[in-house]
């Protein structure tokens, strides 16, 4: 079981969170019209066998979307931050 150290709520079990998937991607600007750019954003996943940047939503807590760095093999979490603060 993962435990995520929510920057607001503190250390909580994974059951309070909803997984939001890969966070290495950046949503293209709304006025981006090239389909291939959107296609990459929506479908392609680096899916590394190592450190993975990913979003988690603290559904049963402060409802913050968090950006987390986690090892996909050991599940060790090395960084947690508000997604809001880590954007471009």
């Amino acid at each position: 079981m993962l435990r995520i150290d929510c920057p607001f709520c503190g250390l909580r079990d994974e059951t309070e969170f909803t997984y939001g998937g890969d966070a290495s991607r950046t949503r293209p600007p709304l006025d981006e019209t090239r389909a291939e750019v959107w296609n990459d954003y929506v479908y392609q996943r680096p899916n590394p066998k190592g450190l993975h940047s990913e979003y988690w939503f603290h559904q049963h807590g402060c409802r913050s979307w968090l950006k987390i760095t986690r090892d996909m093999v050991s599940h060790e979490i090395t960084a947690v931050a508000y997604a809001k603060d880590t954007g471009e």
């Binding site: 979003y55 979307w65 950006k67 809001k84 954007g87």
Partner: peptide
């Protein structure tokens, strides 16, 4: 959840 994702992340 989708709307909060858009607002907080994007």
């Amino acid at each position: 959840r989708h709307l909060e994702y858009l607002l907080q992340i994007d």
